[in-house]
Design a protein around this nucleic acid. Structure first.
Length: 359
DNA sequence: TATCCGTGGGG
DNA sequence: TCCCCAAGGAT
């Protein structure tokens, strides 16, 4: 396996991807940037993360700066990236690290005590930022290991086995490079479909390639179907341009994010009674289209109503009127950007271009 | 062990 | 259109 490790590193030295959070060769990585990137990259593509990462480090260059921000500011910047518990845990972890003088823990065990850091992220930060001789197990390395060692057992049950197999690449020399090399290999060569085995530095020792089954691995257990939930959302526009907005419960789906009022989302939603869910009495006008959005475990179809209401409209419990100039501070997740995009632009005073870029 | 938790791109 | 899946974690 020593030869395979050396071949992997030689390949990495020639083909490593250039990414905003990576340090130049020979330079010590900044644990803050490593941590931030690893959190953002959880279940998220490199392409999607790049812009968010740049925005975050420009606004919050170190962990102390991030700790000094409010959770609302962090959620607002995170809006659009998904899995919002990551942002809440990121903020909590920043405050914990800042409270210890800004020094990150250096071992997987200690790192994993921070919120939002699990087995993978702990191992990745320890290896990349602190040269800890461990191989983190992400989706890429699961795939590389399953193929290299021809593991037929299906995920996720085979995860512990694959983690053990992957440690064959562990070693004291350049552990961070090995981790990133395996991930780059999985992302560019050992891809889920049509792997480019002819270009792979591990081809010689790959049991899956030798058996001609590399592309079929790793096996996965079947996943269940995704139901459709339906509901209604209401966009109330006050005469001064303010919009009626509320904050979702702190935990759960889109926890802590902004939304416009509406119904619960359920498979049994009765569209004929949609108006009964309105937050206030007004001349509600049904908008033309239906907002469709897909979450991890259900699809959503939202009917949208809009109304113009007079300047003197009173406050409602648990809701607030947001002035046009403050809309950019709101942490609207993508589904509610789609909802707002249903309202004719001439009715909205805020410069909604950035809010309305979504489909 | 299984479920919940977003989003966007590619085949 | 649909399905897959991407540097997973919390409960």
């Amino acid at each position: 396996m020593l030869e395979a490790r050396d071949a992997l590193l030689a390949w990495y030295d020639r083909h490593a991807r250039v990414l905003p959070w990576r340090s130049a060769p020979g330079e010590r990585p900044d644990p803050y940037r490593v941590w931030l990137s690893e959190i953002m990259l959880q279940q998220t593509t490199v392409q999607a993360v790049k812009g968010f990462f740049e925005t975050f480090v420009a606004r919050w260059p170190d962990v102390a700066a991030l700790a000094a921000a409010s959770e609302q500011e962090v959620l607002s910047q995170w809006a659009g990236l998904g899995y919002y518990s990551r942002a809440r845990n990121l903020h909590r972890a920043a405050r914990e690290v800042a409270a210890r003088g800004g020094e990150f823990p250096r071992t997987p065990e200690d790192l994993a005590e921070l919120p939002g850091i699990g087995p993978y992220t702990a191992a990745a930060i320890a290896a990349i930022a602190f040269d800890h001789p461990v191989v983190p197990l992400d989706g890429n390395i699961e795939r590389v290991a399953a193929r290299c060692f021809a593991v037929h057992a299906p995920l996720p049950g085979s995860k512990p086995l694959l983690r053990d197999k992957a440690q064959a690449f562990a070693g004291a020399d350049r552990p961070g490079c090995v981790a990133q090399a395996l991930m780059d290999l999985g992302a560019t060569i050992c891809t889920p479909k049509s792997p480019a085995c002819a270009l792979c530095p591990l081809e010689e020792g790959c049991a899956g390639f030798k058996a001609g089954i590399a592309a079929s691995l790793p096996a996965k257990t079947a996943k269940q179907a995704r139901p459709t939930r339906r509901g209604v959302a209401f966009v109330a526009i006050r005469a001064d341009g303010a919009l009626l907005v509320r904050t979702r419960p702190a935990k759960g789906l889109l926890g802590g994010m902004s939304e416009v009022p509406g119904s619960e989302w359920s498979e049994a939603f009765d569209a004929s009674k949609a108006r009964a869910h309105a937050p206030l009495s007004a001349n509600w006008v049904k908008t033309a289209g239906v907002v469709r959005h897909v979450f991890t475990h259900f699809a959503l179809e939202l009917v949208v109503y809009r109304a113009s209401v007079p300047r003197g409209t009173p406050d409602l419990p648990g809701m607030r009127w947001v002035a046009p100039g403050d809309m950019h501070r709101e942490a609207f997740p993508t589904v509610f950007r789609k909802v707002l995009a249903q309202v004719p632009e001439k009715l909205l005073d805020f410069s909604g271009k950035s809010l309305r870029k979504s489909k």
